[in-house]
Design a protein around this nucleic acid. Structure first.
Length: 576
RNA sequence: GCCCCCGUAGCUCAGUGGAUAGAGCGCAGCCCUCCGGAGGCUGAAGCACAGGUUCGAGUCCUGUCGGGGGCACCA
């Protein structure tokens, strides 16, 4: 199925060209032709405001040509098209198109034939895209805040696939930092505790200790597996063990919500390959690094404070628009996170993707800019790195905010949430907000299985289609060889909306705004349910031919709902 | 103090510079002997404020006020 907006735009472009060649319109540089379904039914199925844009062009404006006349001229020159039944120019200068009802009804068969590939677009054909998301270090289970990025990232990946891209999902992690040492030490203490050794469990406010119950579980398993063999070991084997177990948990959790990464990229590999130091060398060679105890242009107070400090290596990111320069190598010789981050993005750019997408939480929002400055400093095109910043999730229970902390152990894990609700509910709620908007996750509402909950409303549409076809089968009724021209205006209302799916995929991938598919799904269901109420297929006063056509329609509707649910990573249940 | 995001209906949120700003919940009424009851119909109610750009602004720009987040030789 092709994008109907594009098809209409092509007609307009041809009409303008024709009008120009005959002198009905003067020559001008054509603005982008935007086609959009209007809000009101009497304004057609698709509308175009190009005549107003043309009238506003400087030389046209000088000639004082009014937009309505331009629109009329365009309409007069439009070529015929099978999908259009009527076109009209209206004041102040809109061009409104109506879809051919005959053509529209025939799309039932197209939808059924295309099935899972309904509106697979070609805009990403032959192109490779990478989406990096989640990327949590394995210090604890995923909590709800993190998982918003998981749903957004995975849904962007699914939409990009629908747009025709070959997509890779990547998870970037660091198992070498001080947090992982703390994790190893925390497990060591729990291990010794299980062995009955006299250990002091650190206090709750000790920021170097992970309190979570999962570590006690790991400790018990470790004793079962290895006995007291590790009683004199340092943190290292404990870190190894905790990391392995934690990743199993994280991957298992993600799998529950249909999120599967193709590549797990370890920051360590950038040290092993030498990429980190090569990045530093390249920055130095380009003259963007200086060695100093303070940043350049530091004030007296700062210099005073740093007078006994050994020099560090600074990246002069202010050259590229940063507020201040950044340390890339600490005075103890170790890099800050910035340097491997730059190296990582250079690595990504070097892998030849046509599109890179990076999903980050708002708490990391400022950091990506430094990476982009670094990439720019090395002569690469930083604009190829598309960053989606996701605002934080606020958990609400009993109308009040629930504070979360992984280290303290009183987090709301994604696993807990899935247990209380369902993978589909979690996916939908975390997806159905613009990334720019703070998300209030109402735990009470999510847990509630009622029609307050939009997830069921959408899935029930699919259930109803499946149910009616199941019932028809039981009664020996078939929808084969149906005459879809017998369908009525209600069914056409649904088909019009279904044919907008392509635009949703197109726009949400172009703008990297996957929440659009969630709202679309709800709107589509909102159009479907009244129709289902009204358009009976197996009622006494419905003729067999009409019944057959309607069953055919419900089969097409089922395809559309299944496709949309799949794009959101949700299941399409046959029964509730 | 500086940077980023957000202020749209009582609440939670949509709205790719186009025509009369939408949905869900809640509230007030109502419908359905169904292939669905996690259903359907109707109604009240809104763009924080002030300038600007534009043929046209909820949308873009500036400022004010309000809310959230970030500003380490931590990641």
């Amino acid at each position: 199925m092709k994008l109907l907006t594009t098809e209409h735009a092509r007609l307009i472009a041809e009409a303008i060209q024709k009008a120009q060649s005959t002198g009905q319109l003067p020559p001008f540089e054509l603005p982008t032709i935007e086609i959009r379904p209007p809000k009101k039914a009497d304004q057609g199925d698709y509308a175009c405001a190009i005549a107003m844009q043309i009238a506003a062009l400087a030389d046209i404006k000088a000639a004082n040509t009014n937009p309505f006349d331009i629109a009329t001229t365009i309409v007069q020159n439009l070529p015929a098209a099978g999908f259009v039944s009527r076109v009209e120019a209206v004041r102040p200068g809109f061009i409104n198109f109506w879809l051919s009802e005959e053509w529209l009804k025939a799309q039932v068969e197209t939808i059924i034939a295309e099935d899972d590939t309904f509106f697979r677009l070609d805009k990403g054909l032959g192109k490779r895209a990478q989406v990096e998301f989640v990327s949590a270090n394995p210090t604890g289970p995923l909590h709800v805040g993190r998982s918003r990025g998981a749903m957004v990232g995975d849904t962007i990946a699914r939409l990009l696939e629908a747009a025709g891209y070959a997509v890779e999902r990547e998870y970037y992690f660091n198992n070498a930092g001080v947090q992982m040492v703390n994790l190893g030490n925390s497990l060591r203490i729990r291990y010794l505790e299980v062995l009955g050794q006299p250990v002091q469990i650190p206090a709750e406010d000790d920021t170097t200790f992970y309190q979570g119950v999962y570590l006690q579980e790991f400790a018990r398993d470790l004793v079962t597996e290895q006995g007291d063999a590790l009683k004199d070991a340092d943190w290292k084997p404990f870190k190894e063990y905790a990391e392995k177990r934690m990743f199993e948990i994280i991957r298992g959790t993600l799998r529950r919500v249909n999120v599967v990464h193709d590549v797990f990229f370890n920051e360590n590999s950038l040290y092993e390959s030498g990429a980190v130091w090569e990045t530093l060398a390249a920055l130095e060679k380009a003259g963007h690094i200086y060695e100093s105890a303070t940043r350049e242009n530091a004030d007296a107070e700062e210099i005073e404070k740093a007078q006994h400090m050994a020099p560090a290596k600074w990246f002069r990111s202010t050259t590229f628009g940063d507020n201040e320069d950044r340390v890339v190598v600490k005075n103890d010789g170790n890099p800050t996170y910035t340097l491997p981050d730059i190296a990582y993005h250079m690595n990504k750019l070097g892998r030849g993707f046509d599109l890179l997408v990076n999903i980050l939480g708002a708490d990391h929002g400022a950091q990506y800019k430094v990476v982009q400055y670094g990439v720019k400093a090395l002569g690469m095109d930083a604009s190829k790195i598309n960053v989606v910043i996701i605002q934080l999730v606020r958990m609400i229970r009993d109308g009040k905010e629930v504070k979360m902390s992984t280290r303290r152990g009183d987090y709301d894990t994604l696993d807990d949430l899935i247990d209380q609700t369902s993978p589909d509910v979690v996916r939908y709620i975390l997806l159905a907000r613009s990334a720019d908007s703070h998300l209030n996750f109402d735990l009470d509402l999510a847990v509630k299985q009622s029609n307050d909950n939009p997830v069921y409303y959408v899935q029930n549409a699919h259930v109803r289609c499946a149910g009616i076809l199941r019932e028809a089968g039981a009664r020996g009724l078939s929808d084969e060889d149906a005459d879809v021209q017998l369908l009525g205006s209600a069914e056409q209302r649904f088909l019009r909306k279904a044919l907008e799916l392509g635009e949703v995929i197109d726009v949400s991938t172009a703008l990297l705004e996957p929440h659009r598919i969630a709202f679309y799904a709800h709107e589509l269901a909102g159009i479907f349910h009244p129709i289902y109420d009204e358009v009976r297929a197996m009622h006494g006063d419905v003729s067999p031919e009409v019944a057959k056509a309607r069953l055919r329609f419900y089969r097409a509707a089922q395809v559309v709902f299944k496709r949309v649910l799949n794009l959101m990573g949700m299941s399409a249940p046959e029964r509730m």
